[in-house]
């Protein structure tokens, strides 16, 4: 439990900082969108569809980064039992789900015009991302169905660690499976990006990372406030 009431002044500063960060984030998203939709040149092969890249790839980075955070935070929680790590793991898992969801549908909507198929079971990245989504949905279900106590935190930490360990193995086995069963499709045509693609990509990455951090901040606040609420309720035996 952190010092719950730092007076009105710090709260006001907090709100101001938050608003500032939100405003910057919003502007960043606008800039990134301008850079990727308007300023970036049309790609020769995929044309306008390549612009989905600027959503898909940054969010894929974020998704994989957040499950890494879940993994590290889960280990930290199991070893230290400090609830702050558990909060971090939970927040990152939710962020992971949000970004993985976007990765999945943007990938599907990219695949349809470019590959001619909504989904391809022969693409290891696609299948791995779906499996990842399933694991972390299970993780979050576990968290939401269980009571919010140390036990649930411990249980979900273990699942969080196993889920992370599972990702590379899944990727590798699906890759190998595809390799041996060459289906009549499609290699992704995202090759090494040129600088004209790289800059809008970096902007998008920055912008969506900012949105994600914003979500993380609010999420963490909720966790803290609900902890505070629990404590107050417990102190007064209010049901």
């Amino acid at each position: 439990m952190d010092k719950s009431s730092n007076g009105k002044r710090s709260k006001a500063i907090d709100v101001n900082r938050f608003t500032l960060f939100g405003a910057v984030t919003f502007i960043l998203v606008l800039v990134a969108t301008y850079m990727s939709l308007v300023a970036a040149p049309l790609e020769a092969v995929q044309g306008v569809h390549q612009k989905i890249f600027y959503i898909h790839v940054p969010l894929a980075f974020i998704a994989y980064a957040s499950i890494t955070v879940v993994f590290i935070a889960s280990i930290a929680f199991l070893t230290t039992k400090n609830p702050k790590w558990d909060r971090l793991a939970r927040t990152s898992a939710e962020i992971g789900i949000i970004s993985t969801t976007i990765v999945l549908f943007s990938g599907s909507l990219w695949g349809r015009p470019v590959w001619g198929a909504w989904w391809s079971w022969s693409d290891a990245r696609l299948v791995t991302t779906l499996v990842m989504w399933l694991i972390y949905m299970g993780y979050l279900m576990l968290r939401s169905l269980g009571e919010s106590n140390n036990q649930t935190a411990k249980v979900s930490s273990i699942i969080g660690i196993l889920g992370f360990v599972n990702v590379p193995i899944t990727y590798f086995s699906v890759y190998l499976w595809t390799y041996l069963h060459p289906l009549p499709t499609l290699q992704s045509s995202t090759e090494r990006p040129e600088s004209s693609i790289l800059m809008p990509f970096l902007w998008s990455f920055l912008a969506y990372s900012a949105v994600i951090i914003l979500i993380g901040i609010v999420r963490n606040k909720i966790e803290k406030s609900s902890d505070e609420l629990e404590t107050i309720k417990k102190q007064n035996q209010i049901r």
Partner: peptide, 15 residues
């Protein structure tokens, strides 16, 4: 470009 619009719209909607 409909796919691009749908992707951007959905992404913003979700986030």
């Amino acid at each position: 470009p409909i796919y691009v619009y749908v992707v951007y719209a959905l992404t913003w909607l979700v986030l």
